[in-house]
Design a protein around this nucleic acid. Structure first.
Lengths: 230, 230, 230, 230
DNA sequence: AATGAATGAGCCTTCATTCAT
DNA sequence: GATGAATGAAGGCTCATTCAT
């Protein structure tokens, strides 16, 4: 009743140096350690601010977290917007995957955005619903449309969803499996340099699979053999 | 469920009812909440043991965690061992995927084993190295061999690794993305009933893609400009 | 209600809308929650003022409290002054009790004045000395004079004080014991409607006792053995 | 779920040196400063115990407070029980008042019991209901019966309650008004020495008043005059 | 005359750990 | 072999206060 972001309720933005530094630091720490393991002390220390400033600007640790997610959302919008809509479906899918992989592998960016959302996906906070509605669902629709177009007559709702998950899963593997990857294949660095190559692999892999599903027209067990490749 | 290490009779000893109950309870709680969020109190409460018993039996919270992982490992061995080695590569790959998906979706089991390893993959503890060496690497080899065989002349080290990740990534997606899936597609339950169908989809998808890679000897049929592989 | 000190034109200045609203709000909150439980935030919120305004206008939370007491004092003067001086002692005592009970039971007023002083009586702040000197002692004198007159030849200093406390105590009971009263006798509301009846009871009760003390010249009519007074 | 007085749920008692010292210290501090102003640090410091011991033994600051009240209750029982039931009503009322005044003025006792209950009366915590039921209501009944007997035919429910409050109010005045008393009449010490004399005054005062009410048989305004004394 | 921003101290609570039996 | 009792460190939060404008 007598707190909340100090009388500036509707300005979701940036003005205020401390507030901004706090958001950045919190994004970094939350994405690295998760909500509970992140301590307000570390966040404030990183931002060079007093411990109580979190209470002042965001009321709460939860309030800070929520605001960090909204902040990440605002930053994410133009990444989305900058993607080209032109080209045929195959090309657009490849582009989509490239953008996704780039996000997963932290290619030239504040870098914690992707990690934070990945974290929410694995162990959701009450904020996940909003994230799904604002960030994930729109992108999911784009992907669904692409897959549906590529499947052509073979597209059923169920199959579109499965293919979508297959594509996203391949991308996510390079994020959530990065620690395993590092230990299993020390020679294959997951640097941003490899991003393009990885994305192409996933695109090739997925397009071939979808082609096969379309050609076979039945997802039957051995239907795939020989067809898609020729 | 809690059979003492069958092949390793002199294992660091599982006798002691309390000790064993502690391991089971800890596995359950650690897998559900992660290392830090799990409290010794809850674990002991679930096991009906004294708070100090963790210190007594395992010296430490970390000691308990390490021992839980080794305990899970011993239990995991025969799951691995029970997988069929017979059949051609296509069939064995499908079996592999079915087993993996079943583990991910907790099909009829005490079931914290899979969840715990999934957790370690995302935010590793010092114990991850041991897990990789003892549990993950062996399975990874099995999968590598399968993929290599299926790729035939098209198999390069790099490509085998990429395909392996594509397959594992699709499976993991149904675990790490389960919260998103539930929100995005409320109609499609991720129950154990769907496990078989999902596994078949992933097998079809992956086999088709691998076939295409093999046939084309170039990553994709009509690789949209830029030829990722070369 | 918030008329500036009428008889004291040069009083430490009440001009300034914010300052005045702050005093009113603080009186309300302090009287309801006590000094420490009252928060500056709530007071300022109620007054629609900035948090720092307390420091600006009153230097301190303590400064605000002191000033609130002085403000209440100024408001209290005419209540005191408006009491009738006419009539015989019995009637004047009854009037005194009615005024006191009305103050205790908050009969149709902004009403935090009485509550605030009651609070100071129970756990005094450094400001209590001033309150006693300026507010309480004058009224106490009035009551002493009445009791002395009523006791007549039986009046000793000690006995006058005791009777005075007996009268005040009965009145205070309806304030400090209100929560007990509510629980013990849910049927008997302590509303302002009952104020007059209660005051009459206390007056009857006390006058009868004083009469007896005077008549017997020994504390009680048939003082049960031991004669307390002698 | 996993806390509460350590597995000794039904033993409301003493064993445990630290636990007992904690109860005593808490009683002292709570009675002097009230629930919120009392700090766990001060209580533990006074008891020579660690800060966390409150959590261990009583789960909570609230839990400690509740237990302190129950502890005070147990101590209070024999005070109650030791009161004589013999004698006529006048004498029993005088005894009642003496006991009450002795409690108010802390005559030779752990000393915080009375203060604590007095505090609860003025600003109740959720525990007040229990206190009323277990401690206050029984005593209140005793007093009601005495007053009813003394009023004889003049006793109505309403009048009995009023007289009861008049008696209790006089006693409470010496507790809640002690700070005022000290400042107003520095000569009259409120030591335990004066307790007996004060109690006798209240008894004389109240008995005379009740006699008058009985004689007048109507509580009318001027009915008291001349009657009770003769 | 007044305020938004920031601060440091302190409180309650929780947790893993240890000690003595 | 096992446990009840006790502890110290740390975390989140609240509050009165101050600074710069």
């Amino acid at each position: 009743m007598n707190r909340a972001a100090p009388a500036r309720p509707a300005a979701p933005d940036d003005t205020g140096a401390t507030r901004l530094k706090l958001l950045e630091s919190a994004g970094e720490v939350f994405s690295r350690k998760g909500f509970r393991d992140a301590t307000i002390r570390e966040i404030c220390g990183l931002a060079g601010a007093n411990i109580a400033s979190v209470n002042y600007h965001f009321r709460d640790k939860h309030g800070l977290y929520t605001e960090v997610l909204r902040y990440a959302d605002r930053c994410a919008v133009h990444i989305e917007a900058s993607e080209p809509v032109a080209g045929d479906a195959r090309r657009r899918l490849r582009q989509f995957i490239k953008a996704y992989i780039a996000a997963m592998l932290d290619v030239g960016r504040p870098s914690w955005h992707g990690r934070l959302i990945a974290r929410e996906m694995m162990e959701p906070s009450p904020a996940l619903d909003a994230i799904v509605a604002q960030i994930i669902r729109p992108r999911s629709r784009v992907l669904s449309d692409l897959v549906e177009e590529l499947l052509g007559p073979a597209a059923t709702e169920r199959r579109v969803i499965r293919c979508k998950f297959s594509i996203i899963g391949q991308c996510l593997a390079y994020h959530s499996g990065r620690h395993i990857h590092k230990r299993l294949h020390p020679g294959f660095e997951l640097s941003s340099k490899a991003a393009d190559e990885i994305a192409d692999h996933i695109a090739d892999f997925s397009l071939a699979a979808i082609d096969a599903l379309r050609a076979g027209h039945k997802p039957a067990r051995r239907a795939a053999r020989g067809r898609p490749g020729s």
